[in-house]
């Protein structure tokens, strides 16, 4: 646990020293959202209708975009191999990295989302559902994305490949995440939806670190 703590702290420190890595996904999120009124229609009724889906897809893409660099720097500068030759658990370190990645992307995306929801005329009743679903859903996205990032970190052309590997696995989270917001907008109960998202998160949290560690070892030893 101490090691997990230390790993999270180190990653957060690195993220703070490299602020563009935090800001870029947020800016991307905002930008993608802005495209829709321009491309579809600025009409409040139309936008409110598609807002849950758009916000969720944009959050998903923003997470995915930031995934590519998750292990890349560590791989390039040799930090990753130092971890592999250390007696510490690689799965735990991977988990630490994902947690701090989520804190600097998914968590902030969730906090930013109400602003975008207002811009898309999402009814205010849906705000708790939006923030809640993003808070509970995006950790799963970070964990699954990290598996893809770990598998492709040693490849020269990993960027597009990671989307191909990861996007199909994102679908359940997207379905339940967007449905939560839709239910919220209709004033329907959302606790069941959130519980399902939570179950997915716990399930992924238990299994993904091992898959990430196995994938990292493989990429290092390639």
């Amino acid at each position: 646990m101490n090691f997990l703590n230390a790993a999270i702290k180190r990653e957060l420190l690195l993220a703070l020293r490299n602020r563009s890595e935090i800001i870029n996904p947020l800016a991307f999120f905002l930008l993608v959202i802005t495209l829709f009124p321009l491309a579809v229609s600025p009409e409040a009724k139309v936008l409110a209708n598609i807002a849950p889906g758009i916000i969720w897809v944009a959050a998903l893409l923003a997470t995915l975009l930031s995934m590519d660099s998750l292990f890349k720097n560590d791989y390039d500068d040799g930090s990753l191999e130092q971890i592999v030759v250390s007696p510490q658990s690689l799965a735990l370190l991977a988990l630490g990295k994902v947690i701090s990645h989520w804190l600097s992307t998914g968590f902030l995306l969730a906090l930013l989302s109400p602003v975008l929801a207002v811009m898309l005329f999402l009814p205010s009743e849906a705000m708790p559902a939006l923030v809640g679903s993003l808070l509970i859903g995006t950790p799963t996205l970070s964990l699954i994305g990290a598996i893809g990032a770990a598998l492709t970190v040693g490849l020269r052309k990993g960027g597009v490949l990671i989307s191909l590997l990861v996007l199909p696995l994102y679908i359940p989270v997207l379905i339940f995440g967007a449905a939560t917001v839709q239910a919220g907008a209709l004033n329907l109960p959302i606790s069941g939806h959130l519980a399902l998202l939570g179950a997915m998160m716990v399930f992924t949290l238990l299994l993904a670190p091992f898959a990430i560690a196995a994938a990292l070892k493989l990429s290092i030893r390639n």
Binding site: L151, L165, L169, I171, P172, I175, A211, A215
Partner: peptide, 20 residues
Amino acid sequence: AASILTLVGVVNIPIIKYSV
């Protein structure tokens, strides 16, 4: 690498099916 991905996929298939 592909085996790891296949295993992750096979675990996810029931979840994907259910959610769809």
